[in-house]
Amino acid sequence: MMRRRFRRSDTEAAAARRGRRRGAVRTGVLAGAVLLCSGALAAADPGLPRAPQMQFVPPAAGTYALQRIQACPDGVLLDASGRARPLADFTRGKITLLTFFYTHCTDPLGCPFAVGLMSALRDRIGADPDLAGNVRFVSISFDPAHDSPQRLRSYARGLSAGAPFEWDFLTASSMARLAPVLDDFGQDVRIELDSQGRPARAINHMLKLFLIDPAGTVREIYALDYLQPQVMLNDIRTLRLEAQGHERHQAASTPAGSSAAGPRGGR
C-alpha cells in the first residue's frame, strides 16, 4: 500500500481552497490559454493572472541540446476504450508530451491550465504536417477510482476528437497499478485532508509535463514556472530535428531494400 504523508503551507492550502471556490474556471482558463498560445509567441506571452510570463526570446529550435533526463517508466494502464495497454505503446516511436491530471481538477493553474496550454499547442502542431504525424500527447489520470475509461472518453471529447494528431487519455485499474508509474516519473500525488482529517476531494500535485523522445527518454520536464508555449514548441522541433538527423544517418548507412530502424538514443 502506498501511503505517504505530506505537508503544505497555510498559504498554499488557502490558495487551493480559493481555487476550488472558483467554479467554472476551466472554460475561462481554456479560452485564455488558447488566446495565450495562438497569438504571436515569439517574444512575450501575455499570460494569465498569476501564471508565469515569458520575458525573453527563447533560443531557436535546433540550436541547443536537450538533456537525457531519465528513461520513461513502464507499466500497464487502461486506454479510453478500457483495454489494458503497456505505457510503452504511448511513449515510443513519436515525440510525446505527457502529463498527469484528474478530470475534477479546478485549480486554475493546475490541470485546466495544462489542458488549455496543450490544446493551443495541439493547434499549432497540427498546422505543421510533419510535426502532426510525429507528435502525440498523453494525459494520464491519477484518480482511477473516478476517472473511468468511460469518463475519459467523455472528457476527451472536444480535445482529441478531430485532432490532427494523436492525443491519448489513460487511466489505471487501481492506484496500486498507477503508483509505480507515478513514482518512476517523480510525480507526487497528495490528497488534501479536511478539518476532520478526512480525505477531501482535492488532489494536490505538482504540475509537470514530460517531453519524451521517440526512443522513450525524458528530455525535458516543465513545471509551472517553465511552461512557456514557444519554448515547448521549440523543444519539440529540436527533438524532431534530432530524429530527422538520425533518420538521415540511418538511411545513409542502411543497405537498399532493408527497413530502417526507428530513432534510438536515451537510456
Binding site: M2, F6, R7, F142, A176, V189, R190, I191, E192, I203
Partner: peptide, 9 residues
C-alpha cells in the same frame, strides 16, 4: 505532514 498520498485504501 498534514495529509496522505492517494492509494487504494
Amino acid at each position: 505532514a498534514v495529509g496522505v498520498a492517494a492509494d487504494d485504501a
